[in-house]
Amino acid sequence: MSREIDMTSSPAIPAGTILAARALTKTYGAVEAMRGADFDLRQGEILAVVGDNGAGKSTLIKSLTGATVPDSGQIYIDGIPVRLTDPTQILGAGIGVVHQDLALSGELDLVSNLFLGREIRKPSFSGRVLRTLDRAAMANVAGEQLARLGLGNVSLTTPVRKLSGGQRQAVAIARGMAFGARVLVLDEPTAALGVRETAVVIDLIRRIRDNGVSVALISHNLPQVLEIADRIHIHRHGRRAAVVAPAETTLREVVGVMTGIDEIAA
């Protein structure tokens, strides 16, 4: 098993790393959700992030996208140190995210969800004075976006709570991908899906990567991860335990690192 990462958490960010973190920490009361977590997502890859329940994967993803502010540590976008305190900051940097369980507002329809927090108003009097939203313009963009992702058949006007789980996840991904994202971070996008819907979402993720978008995919499904990922980040006890290449690694080895049976450099 190849081990690329020098475990002495070096602050130097390798060239071609689009989103990175060094030594992040976060405690919730007595719980240490992150204990010096590092992270590197390279240009154009699918990086899988695996780890046990409660290992701190979601906390890491929230920190990387401004949904949570870490207690200490540093985040880098294109190698440049940034401080993220607001979930809208990453939009300008072209980073889209689909949070675990926090993706959509069920009562709003697809168009409203896609544009939530970044709505388009009509340019006319009605838009300026009555603040009327430009439904047609937003529906147009939404339709194009969905067609590009091969999701042309999802209804634009039903409340998203009425869509199937797979459709909802696809809408959440479309939302993450909206507005020219070059990085997409997905936190357990297939956890609640059946076999067929999972296959559709995985296919979607591949297509997104093939369009040049870098993808960080948090997942529990190890066989799926070994198949789709370019590299695998293994998370354990609030920090990165190893990064491995799927081609040179077996499922058993990954599980070994995840559970600590095969503790690295320890």
């Binding site: 949904a67 809208t88 507002s105 069920g106 939530l116």
Partner: peptide, 22 residues
Amino acid sequence: NTAWGKHIYAVGDNPDAARVAG
């Protein structure tokens, strides 16, 4: 028909999702 209206529904439905949406 307004963004504020959509935000009211979103906040009532799921405030955390609304927050991360901006």
